[in-house]
């Protein structure tokens, strides 16, 4: 995920008339290349998940999802998202506010630090929590004394996910709020509105679609993270297996239908995210056009 990508959602999809200037053969060649590349690298994997999931029919598909281990994996995945997304959303708004509305020394360094979890290998993201809370780690002894379980339990999974999805909302809002500028807010404030009132009546309506988009991506990643969670989970069946881990477990038990059925839920989630995202972009685009007209 990246800044610019999230900053300027595709607004203008209709081809400009100038495009017609390209000779037809160039156009068709490029479209052919694009479509086949997307087909090869994106459509085919997606289709293959679905084909494998339904390889033995709808009943087999549904029954693999009905077993307690699958249910508890789905539950844990939802719980993890439920715990991490709101926290990272609050953080994202706060960080975007202080970075885009104020000038202070070290700002660009701070921005880089916020980005850091994007490019940290998931393996490292898991490792650091083992080093902190593992039995041999910094707080290991203290945690054992007080009988608090973090690693190989739900809190560890939530922490690792929190780390992985940390920048999503902030990274979406920062460019958006930068572009927006603060004139409207300043106007409201100078007219005597309180800080919170200004935030809720001016800022939120302006950033709501971008915010939702960030939340959506954050949620998708929170539910789909594998590498980091795998390191801190302990793989206890029915207890600390999230859905992506359940995919791996089922795959390793030669239960391919179950593996791909769980994978298809995650892929389905990805599709829903993408559809919602397109909708949000369209909505944001319309809102903007409307405000331009006004």
């Amino acid at each position: 995920m990246n800044a610019i990508a999230l900053a300027k959602p595709t607004a203008k999809l209709d081809a400009s008339p100038e495009a017609l200037l390209d000779p037809p053969w160039v156009r068709w060649l490029l479209i052919l290349i694009s479509v086949s590349f997307i087909f090869l690298f994106l459509c085919l994997p997606l289709a293959s998940v679905m084909v494998e999931a339904f390889a033995k029919g709808v009943d087999a598909y549904l029954s693999t999802l009905a077993i307690p281990d699958a249910q508890s994996a789905i539950g844990l995945t939802l719980l993890t998202a439920f715990a991490t997304v709101p926290l990272n959303t609050i953080f994202g708004v706060a960080a975007a506010w202080c970075i885009t509305r104020f000038e202070f020394p070290g700002k660009s360094f701070l921005t880089t630090l916020i980005d850091l979890p994007f490019s940290v290998s998931p393996v490292i993201s898991g490792l650091i929590f083992v080093l902190l809370f593992g039995a041999q780690g910094w707080f290991g002894g203290w945690l054992a004394e007080h009988d608090i379980k973090i690693i190989f339990a739900v809190p560890g999974i939530i922490l690792a996910t929190l780390f992985i999805t940390f920048p999503f909302v902030a990274r979406e809002l920062i460019p958006l709020m930068q572009e927006m500028g603060s004139e409207e807010e300043e106007a409201a404030l100078s007219l005597g509105a309180s800080g919170w009132r200004t935030f809720f009546l001016i800022t939120v309506p302006n950033i709501k679609w971008g915010l939702l988009y960030g939340v959506l991506l954050c949620n998708a990643r929170a539910m789909g993270e594998f590498g980091a969670v795998s390191v801190v989970s302990g793989h206890i069946r029915g207890l600390t297996n999230t859905l992506p881990l359940h995919v791996e477990v089922s795959y390793n038990e030669y239960d391919f239908v179950a593996a791909f059925a769980s994978a298809s839920i995650l892929a389905g989630l990805a599709i829903v995210t993408l559809v919602l995202k397109s909708f949000l972009e369209w909505k944001q685009h319309n809102d903007r056009q409307l405000s331009d007209v006004l």
């Binding site: 809370f133 780690g137 690693i151 190989f152």
Partner: peptide, 8 residues
């Protein structure tokens, strides 16, 4: 490794 790191 998990047991050493505290998997109970």
């Amino acid at each position: 490794r998990a047991v050493i790191d505290g998997l109970e």
